[in-house]
Amino acid sequence: MSIHLHQGDLPEGLDFGNAVAIDTETMGLNPARDRLCLVQLSAGDGICHMVQIPLCRPDRPHRAPRLQALLEDPAVLKIFHFARFDLGVLTHYLGIDCRPVYCTKIAAKLTRTFTDRHGLKDLCKELLGVEISKQQQSSDWGAPQLSEEQLKYAASDVLHLHRLRERLDELLAREGRIELARAAYDFLPARARFDLLGYEDPDIFAH
C-alpha cells in the first residue's frame, strides 16, 4: 500500500484510468451538517491518493478543479461503497456533480439477500478474504494533522473496491440484476440531493 496526501486538490498529471474508487471522511454522518475533511481515491493498483479539504462551509465553498474534473468525467466510472452519502457530501461541500457511479453496497444488497451484513468490512472478508480494520472510523477527521493510523484506515476504504466490483458484477449477472443495479446507480445523485433537502426523514418514497 502506498499513500499520497495532497492539500486542497489533486496534483496535475494523475491518471486513474477508466474507473476510480472513492470514499470520503467527514465530521459526522449528516451530509448537510458535517463538513467534508478528506477524499480518498484509488485506481485499484494499491496506491491511494488523498485530498485533505480545508475548513469550508456551503456559503464559502472550497473548489478543487482537478478533483472535480475527474469526478465529473463521463468516461470515468466512480466506484463507492454507500455512494448515497458520499455523493451528498461532494455536492454540498465541493459543488461536484459526480457521475457515472457504482455502489458496492447496493450491488451487495441486490445479490446477497441471504444476509443483512453489507458493510465494507464484511464484503472484503467474505468476497475477497481480506480483513480490514474499522478502528479509526470515529476519529477526528477535522484535525489539521492526520495520524498514520487514520491514513491507513482511510486508504483501506478504497483499495479493494475495484476487486469488490468485479466479484459483485459476477453475482449480479448470476442473479439477472445487472440492469436493475444500473438503474439504481443512475438514480443515486438525485437521491443524495433529496437527503440534502431534508427528505431522508420523512422519506418521500415511503407510504
Rank of each mutant, 00 (worst) to 15 (best):
M1L: 15
S2M: 15
I3Y: 13
H4A: 14
H6K: 04
D9V: 05
L10F: 08
P11D: 10
P11M: 07
L14P: 09
L14R: 10
F16W: 06
G17V: 05
V20G: 02
V20F: 05
I22C: 14
T24D: 04
L29D: 04
N30G: 04
R33I: 10
D34E: 11
L38N: 03
L38Y: 02
V39E: 08
V39I: 08
L41A: 05
S42Q: 04
G44D: 05
G44P: 03
D45H: 06
D45G: 11
G46R: 10
I47A: 15
M50D: 07
M50T: 01
Q52F: 12
L55Y: 13
L55S: 13
R57W: 12
R57K: 09
P65E: 09
R66P: 05
Q68P: 00
L70G: 01
L71M: 10
L71V: 04
L71A: 04
A75N: 12
V76L: 11
V76K: 00
L77A: 06
F80D: 04
F80K: 04
H81Q: 09
A83E: 02
F85Q: 07
D86V: 01
V89D: 08
V89Y: 11
V89E: 10
L90V: 08
L90R: 08
H92K: 10
Y93C: 07
L94W: 04
G95C: 15
V101Q: 08
C103D: 15
T104Y: 14
K105C: 15
K105G: 08
I106N: 01
A107S: 10
K109F: 12
T111G: 09
F114K: 11
F114W: 14
T115C: 07
T115Y: 08
D116M: 02
R117T: 03
R117H: 11
R117W: 09
G119L: 05
L120I: 01
L120V: 04
K121I: 09
K121S: 13
K121P: 02
K121C: 13
D122C: 11
D122M: 11
D122T: 07
L123I: 02
L123H: 00
L123V: 00
C124M: 12
K125Y: 15
K125E: 15
E126S: 15
L127K: 03
I132V: 05
K134G: 09
Q136S: 10
Q136W: 09
Q137C: 06
G142Q: 06
A143F: 01
A143C: 00
P144I: 06
P144E: 06
E148Q: 14
Q150T: 05
K152L: 14
K152S: 09
A154N: 02
A155N: 01
D157P: 00
V158K: 07
H160Q: 04
R163G: 13
R165H: 00
R165A: 08
E166G: 05
E170V: 11
L171A: 13
L171P: 01
L172H: 01
G176L: 06
R177S: 14
I178F: 06
L180P: 00
A183S: 08
A183Q: 09
A184F: 13
A184W: 11
A184K: 06
A184N: 05
D186N: 09
D186Y: 01
D186Q: 11
P189V: 02
D195T: 14
D195S: 14
P202S: 10
F205C: 07
A206G: 14
A206K: 12
